[in-house]
Amino acid sequence: MLVVTVTPTYTGCPATAVINLDIETKLRSNGIENLRLEQRISPAWTTAWLSQEGREKLRKYGIAPPVEGTSKTGRISRLSSNEALVVACPRCGSDKTEKVSQFGSTPCKAAYRCRSCLEPFDYFKCH
């Protein structure tokens, strides 16, 4: 029996059911019938788990991948620490970008804007 462990990015992630269904459908369509999905929250998901390929796919889709090493290790870090973060525009590559909102359309993203090509884009937050 194939056991697939699935870890949600956030406790409130509403996509987990759909993601599970997609995983199962894909495996079954590849002839794997004897399988079980296991939801596990520990160890907690982190953006460090993103593969290089995954990061590249995000960028191509228009989402800037997380800048590693910028996740918070606790206590209040305030605005200032975030302001120093350089996020490259996924469209033109410019690093002249600014944060519009700490949260984007989903919990895992923040909203940014490129000051060079003006593109609004999402940044996948490091956590």
């Binding site: 996509a15 519009v100 949260f103 984007g104 359309s105 989903t106 919990p107 993203k109 909203a111 609004p120």
Partner: peptide, 24 residues
């Protein structure tokens, strides 16, 4: 409840994104 909250957050996020597109 979680799904609906996420959906409404999504929509506000789309609004923000579109306002940014209009601002360009």
């Amino acid at each position: 409840k979680a799904i609906l909250l996420a959906k409404v957050q999504d929509e506000a996020g789309h609004g923000l994104y579109l306002y940014c597109a209009a601002e360009t």
